[in-house]
Write a protein that binds this DNA or RNA. Structure first.
Lengths: 338, 338
DNA sequence: CCGCGAGAATGAATCGATTCATTCCGCCGC
DNA sequence: GCGGCGGAATGAATCGATTCATTCTCGCGG
């Protein structure tokens, strides 16, 4: 009952194990007659290669690891899809781990991937994972940072210019006549969040008229957004912002829900709201949500591409820092009366 | 440079490989002194177990596979989270594959999992995967069907009573005074879809006044929903349904977008709309979406639980068919003028 | 008829962790 | 002082696919 091994197949077909392996990996080196007999035996015995043995001998696995901040965020689902596509082209598969913005979980996945000797790791890092990644590198496992620029040119990275994105977002709000801007997002240790904020500051500074206040959140979820929205709604009009830049669409949708719950404060009449990522649901929101669009699938695709280059490229390889430009997608949530 | 192996660690610590293995797996059988020395060597050499070798010898891997219909659907993200949670409790990890409602991809993932000799497979099957799953079973890889009931008691399954859910949905529409109901969903080979429709039929039949028309779609996505919405909006009022039951929330959100785009037809005034799954975005939709709620994370958690029972349970194991009950979550999209 | 070379097939060695039958060691009781 | 006992440590064997140096087989030219 135990699964058949190459040895069993060899016996059944009356050839040696070496030949079976050739049939599997270099069929052109095998005589048609022999090839047929072996294939028939494989079929008959229901033989399926054991990946563990393969990898043990070969030294490298056939999968790459991907660690995302939040699997529930469609942005990452799209990114994963792109990564998977490029990996499939190379005959590899992608293992997705969800760190849930939790350093412990992130470390656990890195450990897991290290044990599995994955071909490489794509990671949307939480905090400072440098040391861990260096360590993987030492073991021959390259990594690519996704959705995160890095000053550190010892790693490849694929990201979107978050500072530019933040700038776009706040500029758009200000251009619409909003001047008391609030940035909602966090934790600020997330580089993406910090950069978006940075861009926002620049835009606000440029137009002297606008102020930018920061409301830091514990995570980037709908629930968190809703909580902040409740608080804002309860503020007296004078202290209330008239423009909100949310660090991602999940937060923005939560904010929207809470703000428009009662009629006293509404988006976009009293508050202009813009999110980030332009997830598919953004346009279907209570009030269609303005957002900053990122080429999510392309990021994943490109990241795997870089990874493969590094993995195969040998010494000649140069780490690449790829930066895409974000794009403003204005919708009703930032519409002005005019 | 090459990674250190147990052999290296053994040499460094002046013990045998067997002892190193004991330190790793049964530390209590090792003298404190020896244990310390070995651990120090492990630390110093940066030794990390090679999972492939472990699995090759042990025969079974430390991960379980999960195949979902659509990774972009938050319902599956939640389900995966639940699965992951239970797996982690057992020291296992979950590999997520996205079939994207595509039989070829589904088969490819099953092959991959078979090669990896995963501990078991959780699958939200597309069509008839019975034979493939039987085959895995023959190799000692049990599977559990998720989000899908099965008449076939040779497999365990965890699902929600979709017929009941469909019944709830259509009853709710009819109770709100809607009588020309359209069911939007597909492909109908998806059991979940067929069952929801079946439930809808029952509800319609029960209230003789209502008619139920089926608009079959190619997939369960926002885009597809939008397309159908456009078509419905273009219909003359007399042919237009006054209630729509969408097979999932993604479709529903797409429909909503398209329908409410211009002011002539609106939800819920002209058409009552209800979705399925109650994803987090449903309540943040243009018009908060009524839906049928499923305990998504619990489904995943329970499925892994069943899987582990089957995997460890030996002969005494009985396949369980667990069915949860869905719940109606009425929101504004089905509100009636009254 | 013999020798040679190209191509096909062989099978022992290998990867690294785990297992388990065996050996080793120290100590207690008689 | 010695037999015996139990706990600790040992290391050869094992899992299954792959590799590669070696052997085998033919066909053809001389």
């Amino acid at each position: 009952m135990a699964s058949a091994s190459v040895r069993d197949v060899a016996a059944a077909a009356g050839v040696s194990v070496g030949t079976v392996s050739n049939v599997l990996n270099r069929p052109e080196k095998v005589t048609p007659g022999t090839l047929g007999r072996v294939q028939e035996a494989i079929e008959r015995l229901g033989f399926v290669r054991n990946d563990a043995a393969r990898q043990l001998r070969g030294g490298r696995s056939r999968s790459i690891g991907l660690i995302v901040l939040n699997a529930g965020n469609p942005f990452f689902a799209d990114l994963a899809r792109g990564a998977e596509e490029r990996a499939a082209e190379a005959g590899l598969s992608v293992l997705v781990g969800n760190s849930d913005e939790n350093a412990t979980r992130e470390a656990a996945y890195l450990d897991l991937f290290e044990q599995q000797r994955v071909r490489g790791v794509l990671i949307s890092p939480l905090g400072d994972t440098g040391p861990q990644l260096q360590r993987l590198r030492g073991r021959g496992i390259p990594s690519v940072l996704v959705d995160r620029q890095t000053e550190n040119s010892t790693f490849s990275s694929v990201a979107v210019d978050d500072v530019a994105g933040g700038y776009l977002a706040v500029s758009h709000l200000v251009a619409g006549g909003r001047s008391r801007i609030a940035f909602v997002g966090g934790p600020l240790v997330l580089r993406q969040v910090a950069d978006r904020l940075e861009g926002g500051y620049r835009a606000a500074a440029e137009r002297g008229s606008a102020t930018l206040e920061v409301i830091e959140t514990g995570s980037l979820t709908v629930t968190e957004g809703r909580a902040v929205g409740e608080r804002i709604r309860a503020l007296p009009p004078s202290e209330r912002p008239d423009g909100i830049f949310a660090a991602n669409d999940l937060l923005a949708m939560g904010l929207l829900q809470a703000l428009n719950m009662s009629g006293d404060v509404t988006v976009p009449r009293d508050i202009g709201l813009i999110g980030y990522d332009d997830i598919a649901f953004a346009s279907a929101a209570v009030v269609p949500l303005s957002s900053i669009k990122q080429p999510s699938a392309l990021i994943g695709y490109t990241a795997v591409d870089l990874l493969l280059q590094e993995s195969d490229g040998g010494d000649a390889f140069e780490h690449g820092q790829i930066v895409f430009q974000p794009e403003l997608v204005p919708r009703e949530s930032t519409a002005t009366g005019a």
